[in-house]
Write a protein that binds this DNA or RNA. Structure first.
Lengths: 152, 152
DNA sequence: AATATTTGTTAGGTATACCTAATTTATTAT
DNA sequence: ATAATAAATTAGGTATACCTAACAAATATT
């Protein structure tokens, strides 16, 4: 049982990327982590040691990297936050995908569980809520058009 | 003309706090900045030097602190992001005020101008949009109640 | 099996951003 | 005016998180 002590945004990003790599490649490798995070491979090792010490990944020198159960929980939580935020940005606010992804990537560290579940409910509500003969989201798009809000 | 070079989240927070203090006290003082940011006074000086070098504040040793025009622009932008996000969290997602404030404080650094203006439009839309005999926001509250979404 | 290539690690360095404790300057009270 | 108090700065230290370049290990090629 290690101190949870709050993960830094950076370490959260590592976990998220490792989960992504595990899904596509079964295991994560340092080089790929570096590429995804846009950093140099030399920077990865230190972070892996920290994550290992915190009991979030299984790591041995020169070995493959996998998430522990504890690490997986966190990684999945962060990934979910990312997806929900991106969903909101793309499907509700009508932000372009790549930009939405980048913004979600920054916001995911800033949103707590309570806010998250409220946001999930809100998106659910928007999809359920019939507004005139369309729905709230489509009505918002129409509203933007009518008011000349930039659609880029 | 200094390099803009992207302000760190921390320096953004300093500007935001300085603006807040200028509004209530005409000038900001190191001690108050430290209090608002929950850091020790000794940590403030270095940051002030950096902000001064970037041309964002007027600062002289042992003197008062005010924002330059450039610093004011940034501070106002950040403050606006904070307010819009808080407004969304409190009035749309129905998050409790203090918690919303803390979340807004973290999210304000993560949201870009395009997303910001989309969010502004969206809040506007929600207020304008009549839904049944109430409006979208109230309808969302009802939806949460009907679906047992936690109201804390 | 030996060599080449790729990948990972280490070591030393930079930048940010905080801390504490000592010191200096400014302000206030006598 | 002087002494006491308050506020700001400095100096030295810690932690995070990155960098580059040199080195080591593992994998692939012939």
């Amino acid at each position: 049982m290690e101190k949870d002590a709050e993960l830094s945004e950076n370490l959260e990003d590592y976990l998220e990327v490792i989960l992504e790599l595990e899904k596509t490649r079964k295991v994560a490798r340092g080089k790929e982590i570096a590429q995804k995070l846009n950093i140099q491979p030399g920077s990865v090792t230190g972070a892996l040691k920290t994550l290992d010490k915190k009991g979030l990944i299984n790591w041995e020198k020169y070995g493959y990297i996998t998430l522990t159960k504890k690490g997986l929980n966190i990684a999945e939580n962060i990934t979910q936050r990312h997806e929900v935020l991106k969903n909101f940005l793309v499907n509700v606010l009508q932000i372009e995908k790549d930009s939405a992804d980048a913004t979600a990537c920054r916001m995911e560290h800033a949103i707590d569980d309570t806010t998250m579940s409220k946001l999930v409910s809100f998106i659910e509500y928007l999809n359920a809520c019939p507004h005139a003969e369309t729905n709230c989201t489509r009505a918002f798009v129409a509203y933007c058009e009518a008011n000349g809000v930039d659609q880029t």
